[in-house]
């Protein structure tokens, strides 16, 4: 038993190393001087030079903290938006009887399948009519309006797994739907909410295209847009700074995942996708 467990750990650790070799290479490269990054093979580090971090932080028009803060605002807005609006829609789909439920549910599923690129232009025209270009609204308002149907679907499946007896009991006590939703369903679906929060955080933190199109002033740039300012397709790219700041960017996501993963597993586990 003990030997087999040792073997299993050994295999897993080797697998881990293969999995994260590219990441390790990036971490190592972030400590290398620019001109050695593509010349020195392997992961051996001759010196631990933090110059890429110091330079990368202040290399762009604004300090990197500005971009991190912008990304944080967008991510926070997106998380709150998704949590509130998706859970409300999910409650209606999972628990309420109303006319057109099946049709609307079908349409909701259909919107998951819609290729994103084709609505970009019409949406841009719409949001620019609202005067929202170069604001965070186009990145946040769609979440406030539950356009990420994936999460509505996830939460519907989750709520269906919560025993109906609980809301029946509350209803007999005279509770209305807002109270049942707030006092019973929401607390019980904390894990699903955590899942949504973490996925939303990761997706919105990494979103490049939407941010690129809507944000025009450097003061408003989010991290993915800022990172590409290190890259010049025709001129020189500061790879060291790019890698260093990529790691700075990755750290909060990894942390969020590390902290949230308990809820994550529990969240999906209890959705009862059956």
């Amino acid at each position: 038993m003990r030997a087999s467990s040792l073997v299993r750990h050994a295999v897993l650790i080797v697998a881990c190393l293969i999995m994260i070799y590219p990441l390790l290479w990036m971490v190592v490269s972030s400590f290398r001087p620019d001109d050695l990054i593509f010349r020195q093979p392997g992961l051996w580090l001759t010196s631990l030079d933090t110059v890429n971090y110091r330079e990368g932080w202040s290399a762009l028009t604004r300090p990197f903290s500005v971009y991190l803060a912008n990304s944080a605002v967008v991510a926070l807005g997106a998380i709150i938006g998704n949590l509130v609006s998706c859970s409300m829609a999910a409650y209606a789909f999972a628990r309420l009887e109303f006319r057109g439920r099946k049709a609307l549910f079908g349409i909701m599923l259909l919107t998951i399948m819609l290729p994103f690129h084709v609505v970009v232009v019409p949406q841009y025209i719409l949001f620019s009519q609202f005067g929202w270009v170069n604001t965070f609204w186009p990145l946040i308002v769609p979440k406030l309006l539950a356009t990420d149907s994936f999460f509505v679907f996830l939460m519907v499946q989750f709520i269906r797994g919560i025993p109906r007896e609980l809301d029946e009991a509350a209803r007999i006590d005279g509770a209305g739907h807002p109270r049942i939703f707030l006092a019973i369903i929401l607390p019980l679906m904390t894990p699903a909410l955590a899942t949504t929060a973490i996925f939303t955080f990761i997706w919105s933190w990494n979103d490049f295209f939407t941010a690129l199109i809507y944000l025009t002033a450097p003061d408003m740039f989010t991290v993915p847009v800022a990172l590409r300012a290190f890259v010049d397709s025709t001129g020189s790219t500061s790879w060291g700074s790019l890698f260093a700041m990529s790691i700075v960017t990755l750290a909060p996501v990894f942390l969020a995942f590390l902290l949230g993963q308990r809820f994550l597993v529990k969240g999906i586990a209890t959705t009862g996708i059956k």
């Binding site: 232009v121 841009y124 025209i125 270009v133 025009t216 450097p218 025709t234």
Partner: peptide
Amino acid sequence: VQVEPTTFDGYFDKLATQFAANDAP
């Protein structure tokens, strides 16, 4: 003048979208 430096990645996409919305720099 409001400066709008953009990355080369996605530059022409952004530009075409802006022209479509009559919102080009």
